[in-house]
């Protein structure tokens, strides 16, 4: 085992230890707290947006800016892939 592997093992153990402590001391699975915003969206998505699907009403109406950024990232990724392979495709 080289020195590089030893450093990797130690840092991985520290990371997993802290993550495991955090997961073991989290709130119980299936019991939510502070869900005021979600309860508002569940009860108002039908009369404010008119959509039966509350997830779609969040994606395209309440949090439209997130979807705009997501579409921009998808566009940038497509442009990046085409630029990376431009020489191979067009010659």
């Amino acid at each position: 085992m080289s020195k590089r592997d030893l450093v990797g093992v130690i840092s991985l153990l520290i990371l997993v230890g802290f993550l495991g402590l955090g997961a073991a001391s989290m709130r119980e699975f299936g019991v939510v707290d502070r869900a005021y915003m979600d309860d508002y969206i569940i009860s108002h998505s039908q009369d404010e947006v008119g959509a039966n699907n509350a997830v779609t009403s969040v994606v395209f109406d309440y949090r439209g800016f997130d979807t705009l950024g997501e579409a921009t990232i998808l566009f940038a990724a497509v442009v990046g892939v085409i630029v990376i392979f431009r020489r191979e495709v067009h010659e």
């Binding site: 915003m37 509350a54 997830v55 969040v58 994606v59 949090r63 990232i73 998808l74 990724a77």
Partner: peptide
């Protein structure tokens, strides 16, 4: 169940596909 984490997960999945392709 809460809709906002599901919507953000949808965003995160699409961003993951884009980053994976790059």
């Amino acid at each position: 169940v809460l809709p906002v984490p599901q919507a953000l997960t949808l965003t995160s999945i699409v961003i993951g596909v884009a980053v994976l392709a790059l």
